[in-house]
């Protein structure tokens, strides 16, 4: 590959960078609150809820994200095929109303798979954070007459946030790279495009360029998280 070709491929990958970033951003935005919700469900005193939550986490962490993406992406078309012969419940008509050939369907399926998967990891990180807060903090707050809600919001949550920053940074860095798994269902992100360019030029240089994109993104993520960590450094 000559210099011109490299510039051209870089330009093409750059055009598809927003697709990668879109998936990354939506996943991050939703999986953190969903992860908090999962942490709460896991700590639910009604045991069946806690068990189901554990099962969910076990499956999400125990099977490859790539399989999960494929399964969720093909689930709706398969269901549609099953429902085709004139069944009409609410669920069937809902499934039938989904246009599985649209781009938005593909992106939605991807987001569902990524959010469900990442929420499971975040849930475990947050649970570890909550469990690491000494019992004395709860006792001190309760001796001062604070309600459970006040204790959680004002005393526990800020300390948990500080403690989960490093583990969360790890997860976010992995997420940047995991977006490349979306190419398995032909989502037009940079890995998918790099593979196409690799075939066009019979060269692996497009893959190196794609790698550089991820590398730069993660350099930015790393800097942002070290700034966040610094912000929390005012106490030990």
């Amino acid at each position: 590959m000559d210099w011109e070709a490299i510039k051209k491929v870089t330009g093409i990958l750059f055009d598809y960078l927003p697709n990668t970033l879109k998936l990354f951003t939506i996943t991050l935005l939703f999986s953190i609150p969903v992860g908090m919700l999962v942490t709460m469900l896991k700590k639910c005193r009604f045991k069946p809820v806690a068990w189901l939550t554990n099962l969910y986490i076990l499956i999400m962490r125990g099977t490859p994200l790539m399989l999960q993406i494929i399964a969720i992406y093909y689930a709706v078309p398969m269901l549609k095929a099953n429902f085709a012969s004139g069944s009409d419940g609410f669920f069937a008509s809902f499934v039938n109303s989904i246009d599985t050939r649209s781009d938005s369907y593909m992106f939605t399926a991807l987001c569902v798979a990524f959010v469900l998967n990442y929420a499971a990891y975040f849930a475990e990180i947050f649970r570890g954070g909550v469990d690491s807060i000494p019992k004395g903090q709860y006792e001190a707050a309760s001796m001062l007459g604070m309600t459970k809600m006040q204790t959680f919001i004002r005393i526990i949550l800020p300390q948990v946030t500080k403690r989960v920053v490093p583990a969360t940074a790890n997860e976010v860095i992995t997420l940047v790279k995991d977006t490349s798994l979306a190419n398995v269902i032909a989502y037009a992100e940079i890995t998918m495009k790099a593979k196409q360019q690799m075939n066009t030029y019979s060269s692996i240089i497009p893959l190196f360029i794609a790698g550089l994109f991820y590398f730069v993104l993660n350099a930015i993520v790393t800097v942002i998280f070290s700034l966040i960590e610094k912000k929390f450094n005012y106490y030990k």
Binding site: G145, Q150, Q159
Partner: peptide
Amino acid sequence: LVFQNFNLFPHFNVMHNITEAPVHV
């Protein structure tokens, strides 16, 4: 109650530790 190991709130400064309950409780 004063605890053996203090149980101060590490993320609040001294002033905030003392005023937290009077203000919010």
